[in-house]
Amino acid sequence: MRPGSAGLPLPGHAFKIIDDTGKEVKTGEAGTLVITKPFPSLARSIWNDHNKYINQYFSVFPNFYCTYDSAIKDKFGHIWVIGRTDDVINVSGHRISTMEMENSIMSVPDISEAAVIGIDHEIKGTVPYVFFTSKNTDNELKNKISSAIESSIGRFAMPEKIIIIPEMPKTRSGKIMRRLLKEIVMHGDVSGDITGLENPDSINIIKNAINNQK
Rank of each mutant, 00 (worst) to 15 (best):
T67R: 11
S104Q: 04
C66Y: 03
R95Y: 11
A209F: 03
I149R: 07
A209P: 00
T21H: 06
G83F: 07
I123A: 14
S107I: 03
N63M: 10
I184S: 04
I163M: 12
F132H: 07
H187M: 06
D189K: 15
M158P: 02
S173I: 12
I96W: 05
Y57L: 00
D138I: 05
D189P: 00
N211I: 13
T27Y: 02
I96Y: 03
V60D: 06
I149D: 04
R44Q: 15
G174W: 08
I210T: 12
I46L: 13
S112P: 00
K144W: 04
N211L: 15
W80P: 03
I79E: 02
K135M: 09
F64I: 11
G196Y: 01
K75H: 14
T67N: 06
P11T: 05
S173L: 12
S5F: 02
I96L: 14
G83L: 12
K144G: 04
L197C: 11
I203E: 03
S191N: 11
N51V: 00
A209M: 10
P38I: 09
G154Q: 04
K23S: 14
I149V: 08
P9L: 07
S147T: 08
T36W: 14
M1H: 13
D87E: 06
A14Q: 11
E102W: 11
S202V: 15
T21C: 05
M177N: 04
S112W: 02
Y53F: 15
K73G: 01
E24T: 13
E160N: 09
S191R: 13
T36C: 12
S151M: 07
V130T: 10
A6G: 10
K182H: 07
S152T: 14
K214Q: 13
K37L: 09
G196L: 06
T195D: 08
V88G: 06
Y53D: 08
D49E: 13
T36K: 09
S202P: 05
N51P: 00
H78L: 02
K16A: 13
L141I: 15
M99K: 09
L8T: 06
F131P: 02
N212S: 15
D87C: 00
N199C: 03
L141A: 04
T133F: 10
V190S: 04
P38D: 13
P159C: 10
H187V: 03
N103A: 10
G83Y: 08
A209N: 04
S147R: 11
L8P: 01
V127Y: 00
N143K: 15
F64E: 08
